[in-house]
Design a protein around this nucleic acid. Structure first.
Lengths: 332, 332
DNA sequence: ATGAAAGCGCTAACAT
DNA sequence: ATGTTAGCGCTTTCAT
């Protein structure tokens, strides 16, 4: 910056004024400064600036998702990035892997880099870094999972209602032995979806059976194995509700390998790319990751602009998409 | 930091020494400092530190991909993130959308935030920011696409050979009228894959037909439309080579809608989730995004540690995965 | 083993 | 309309 000032024959503060287009610079000097900036390929150091700037902003935000590799997270990331870019903000993204330790170090990494705000998916019901965020006045919006703490801003799918609708759909087709394949129940999403499953059964007067509920499934293979075991049991399910996208993939493998794709019904929570091209098409309870990302980002920006109303708890509706697999009726 | 120093009853420099565990601090003082740090929930400001630090490092890197929403990009991102985290580095990710303007502003945003290094996918053959990177000594590794500039470090799939192998596979099944569905040819990947297609035809003595080559396809819908048109033409292709993952999805839709999934062969470049569950399974020329990401990240870290050898041009082999759609033989 | 002073690149506050 | 001085939170250099 000093070089630019020297080349343009002005003081550094004038250069600063030009860059941030503050008032009180004559057009002539501004032009000279811009020339010097171009001549030197000067790029202002945003971090150094924020060190002294009154609001201390770094124009940077942190995004924590399940895994940047997961299509659901990718969709959220993309929306957040686009909205952030419109405001000249850049985004740090990190993967959580549903590991509280990894979550903690990711948040720490964000804080050390002085992000202005955070959009977080959490693996814990009561994240331990919340007091720190409060103290430092760093706004955060939780997405996908709602911690069990009051006063937080959250945006998530209607997991319970969506799961209930998916299972009710299977019940309408005449199924009574419906399997549940779910993730670790300490994750809010998994337990809410299980609750929806149980609510749908209860509403139809179907008693729950532990033999039909597999939980703690965290990847494709564990889901596949769990369903294979159920299909080989004495009273196999006639329908399956899989409560997460990777689990649905595992279930699809198990059904295909057992030759049951056309005889055992399947409804999955969360949509999959190509789900409509399978045969039968995969019926899903679709989430709307774009909408989740959009609401979260907009809420975060509102907080950054000093919105002071009460925290919001935003629930994004799900949508049942019938494609065939969920409309299979139980064998007579 | 001053507060910590005050609470621990030491000078700020001692706190600095403890944080960066430099030598010459007695265990007793160190312990007192750590206590103070915990008591105050102190997080050092990494950016402020790098301002004065001799190497100026921010422990941050920039990653530019096609779109953070694309599974290929997601896989690369994930690997880069994991390797970066091991070294205490955070990563800024941005989407390119194959738009040179967006590419430029993303790189500018990275530079203003003083990233230590870059992993870049580019939409231009000669990115205009290269001189700036040189001047500032910011190392960059290009992934997926190789700019037409000497002296750069690059990591990419063997696009030409992979495409040639995919098309040769179709020719082996007896096909002679093989369609090409490709992206904008100004993108290195697209033109290399087209070249592979042409090489395979030439090797088999099949003359090229412009009616069978659709280019400038950039998303699912344009690919679908292009293939629909070809299938309705006088001499429709008996096989299709789709040169990119979104294009393959479009082709699958077109084939299904035209009722040709079982009669027209398809080989796609780049693997798709669920490709093995479709019926028939989708034969693909699989890339290895993890390997691409790993090599790029490791090369970047080597450059950051001052490796001074000549730039490397790393070519990652592809692998043909036969799943059914590519083994369909032409109708007699 | 520890601390004081200077300075990294920038912006705030106050001149002029 | 422009420049000067101080200081953001840290690390360097050099003294003690």
């Amino acid at each position: 910056m000093k070089q630019v000032a020297a080349l343009a024959g002005v003081g550094t503060k004038t250069v600063s004024r030009v860059i941030n287009d503050e008032p009180n610079v004559s057009d002539a000097t501004a032009a000279r400064v811009w020339d010097a900036i171009r001549a030197l390929d000067y790029q202002p150091d945003l971090q150094a600036g924020s060190l002294r700037r009154s609001d201390g902003r770094t124009r940077t935000l942190g995004l924590l998702v399940g895994s940047v590799d997961n299509p659901f997270a990718g969709a959220i990331h993309r929306v957040v990035e686009d909205l952030a870019a419109e405001r000249g903000m850049a985004v740090f993204a990190s993967s959580l892997d549903d590991d509280p330790a990894r979550e903690g170090s990711a948040v720490r990494a964000f804080l050390q880099r002085r992000v202005d705000g955070l959009i977080l998916t959490t693996a814990s019901r009561r994240p331990d870094y919340l007091p720190q965020l409060r103290e430092r006045g760093i706004p955060a919006v939780f997405v996908d999972r709602e911690p069990l703490v009051d006063g937080l801003d959250t945006v998530a799918s209607d997991n319970r209602a969506g799961a209930e609708a998916g299972v009710a759909h299977l019940i309408e087709q005449g199924h009574r032995r419906i399997a549940l394949l779910a993730d670790r129940l300490d994750l809010a999403t998994a337990s809410q979806r299980q609750q929806g499953y149980l609510d749908a059964l209860a509403a139809a007067g179907i008693s729950r059976s532990d033999a039909l509920m597999a939980t703690d499934l965290h990847d494709v293979d564990s889901a596949r194995t769990a369903l294979e075991r159920m299909l080989g049991a004495a009273e196999p399910p006639t329908a399956v509700f899989s409560a997460q996208n990777l689990i649905t993939i595992g279930a699809l493998h198990a059904l295909r390998d057992a030759g049951c794709s056309r005889s055992v019904a399947l409804v999955g929570f969360d949509d999959l790319p190509l789900a409509d091209l399978l045969d039968p098409g995969v019926t899903v309870v679709a989430q709307d990751p774009q909408e989740i990302g959009r609401r979260a980002a907009e809420r975060l920006f509102a907080l950054l602009e000093g919105a002071d109303e009460a925290p919001i708890r935003s629930v994004v509706p799900t949508r049942l998409i019938a494609r065939g697999s969920g409309e299979i009726t139980p064998a007579a």
